[in-house]
């Protein structure tokens, strides 16, 4: 088993703590079937380094894992990683997680760009992303009130600590997904054909049972001819129900 990056420096009062969903992503990306798929796509000699984007990095545990295991997962020593999060505290925490992981386990195996404070993938150049990873806010719960975002996204003026209300708001951003838990995920799915590279782009998105994953996959297959969506990892099986699953979204290469 590949080591899990350390997140002991992260304050989980306002940044999502790695949980079952995060670990399912790590296990899926490093599973033998996904490694075979990814190496087939990305390990060709002298091909350009794939850009891996994770949206909503939180503590950074998933992106750090991808960064230090570039060789094991993608079959190359030069993958590029970039992250975004709407929560500025998460951006700083994740950058630290990735730096530490690279020092401890990296052996110069990847190139880490930055963690950007932004909304989903809105600041990425179209068709520049080769591997997209998203552990969305998937819980069917009311979305927080974004009107407060600007004031809650940094330390209160002249203060060294965040407030309790601020922390609650920042954590809500990490899990609350509105109706069916799909409001944020649907917004992100819409951007996927636009951000993925045309020839080799692939996306991994986590869904929970309440997100109606079968319907989501069916919708993706109807985007344009050639788009595929399949479950490639799952956890929490109860009476035939999978509580969480990772779907892989990609276009059949012509």
């Amino acid at each position: 088993m590949l080591p899990t990056p350390s997140t002991s420096h992260v304050c989980f009062d306002r940044v999502y703590e790695p949980a079952e969903d995060s670990f399912l992503l790590l296990d899926t990306l490093s599973s033998s079937s996904e490694v075979a798929f990814l190496q087939e796509r990305f390990s060709k000699a002298q091909s350009t380094p794939p850009l891996i984007l994770e949206v909503g990095v939180g503590s950074g545990v998933v992106l750090a894992f991808a960064a230090v295991n570039g060789n094991r997962i993608f079959g190359r020593q030069d993958v590029l990683t970039i992250g975004t999060d709407i929560n500025s505290f998460a951006c700083k925490a994740a950058a630290q997680t990735i730096r530490t992981a690279i020092v401890e386990h990296g052996h110069g195996a990847s190139i880490s760009l930055d963690v950007i404070n932004g909304d989903l993938a809105s600041c990425l150049r179209p068709h520049s992303v080769d591997v997209f990873i998203f552990n969305p806010p998937y819980v069917p719960a009311e979305l927080p009130d974004f009107a407060r975002h600007e004031s809650y996204n940094s330390l209160p003026e002249g203060q060294k600590k965040t407030t309790f209300e601020q922390d609650s708001y920042l954590l809500e951003l990490s899990y609350a997904g509105g109706e069916d838990g799909m409001v944020v995920t649907d917004r992100m799915l819409e951007q996927i054909p636009e951000i993925l590279s045309d020839d080799r782009g692939v996306a991994y998105v986590l869904l929970c049972a309440q997100n109606k994953p079968e319907q989501v996959k069916e919708r993706i297959r109807q985007w344009y001819p050639g788009w595929m969506a399949e479950a490639v990892g799952s956890s929490g099986k109860q009476a035939g129900w999978e509580k969480l699953q990772i779907i892989r979204i990609w276009k059949e290469q012509a």
């Binding site: 500025s88 700083k92 950058a95 404070n117 932004g118 600041c123 975002h149």
Partner: peptide, 18 residues
């Protein structure tokens, strides 16, 4: 103009630009 603070670029837009 997007600000960069402590090395972190901020691409969040004010409500009226989204």
């Amino acid at each position: 103009e997007y600000k960069v603070m402590e090395g972190v670029p901020n691409f969040l837009l004010p409500g009226h630009l989204v």
